[in-house]
Design a protein around this nucleic acid. Structure first.
Lengths: 172, 172
DNA sequence: CGATCTTGGTTGTCCCTTCAACCAATCGGA
DNA sequence: TCCGATTGGTTGAAGGGACAACCAAGATCG
């Protein structure tokens, strides 16, 4: 209780704080940048884009809601709202699953496929501009390993399979 | 037009896609994890916490709105709303800047200082659990460099100074 | 087979962010 | 000195996400 320092932020080591501050900045700025480009060029949220992408990569362009939610790192309520909106825009259609009558399937429509196909190249280019082209091949590997470690903490059970990526626990 | 492949996501290289997918997952999961802990333990958003932190680190616990916005990677409208809410909770007070009569200053109140001081240790611990302790010292340096490169693309003018961190362009 | 638990999903409400519009003060010339 | 442009900031409406409540269908077990 004799510490004379003024009230200030609790400190980590300098290296830790520097890395942490930058990581936070990236997590704040990147989503907005992706959304901005996709909304401008394709009237699509980045999250909506990923929903369409998972469907495009699924058998018959069809997936159950729960699987779709885990492949987009999303909650079921969130996904339900988003799919309803996409359905209103006729990019996706929902129908009851034949095998399990509790389940709902979402399927990409022709219009949805067209929108997704048209949005793809511009989005990829944006990802290159903002991320991939900024990193060396070694840094890409490092990013893969680092993100893997963080996901091991953020999503220990590996529920968020994200995509077909087989989430081996962060071995370089 | 003779490409026989089914409609599918435009592809990057395997290494690029793998790293990209994981980065996206981190940017989706990390903010929620931080918000959850702070809301539970201190009724504070991570963004609100950072507003309080910047004020705590400012001279006289006071800062103009524009400076506060750039130090929190935020827009002015967003900050304005948040500061109004914090003011409603008496954690912050606003008053006109004496030197520039257009400007508004925000100052941390005693209550705000107390809430921030109480929230700090738990938050730092969470950051350790989710991020810092998951990485080796080398990875921490790599993360610093990688994030720096990305910020060079996401915020070229360096408007988002984030904190006192002097944003030298991503030299390791 | 009936009671209960779990799984799969939707809906409504609240809160926060975004965006556009707006206003006041200051600066920069002509 | 006056007018336009820029800076600093607020506000209101609109849209998306989180959470809790809810419901229906399958599974489990007596």
């Amino acid at each position: 209780m004799v510490d004379p320092r003024p009230v200030t932020a609790p400190r980590m080591s300098a290296a830790e704080e520097a890395a942490w501050v930058r990581l936070i900045a990236v997590t704040e700025l990147l989503p907005g940048a992706l959304d901005a480009q996709l909304l401008r060029d394709a009237r699509l949220t980045h999250f909506e884009y990923r929903v369409l992408m998972v469907l495009a990569d699924s058998e018959n362009q069809t997936s159950g809601m729960t699987r779709l939610a885990s492949h987009t790192n999303s909650t079921l309520p969130r996904l339900s709202h988003v799919v309803r909106r996409l359905e209103d825009r006729a990019l996706v259609e929902r129908f009851p699953c034949p095998e399990d009558r509790r389940a709902t399937n979402a399927r990409l429509t022709d219009a949805g496929r067209a929108v997704f196909a048209e949005a793809g190249p511009g989005h990829i280019e944006t990802v290159r501009d903002f991320v991939l082209d900024a990193l060396s091949p070694e840094q890409l590997d490092q990013l893969y390993a680092i993100s893997g470690s963080l996901l091991g903490r953020l999503d220990p059970e590996g529920r968020m399979t994200a995509t077909s990526c087989s989430r081996a626990p962060a071995s370089v």
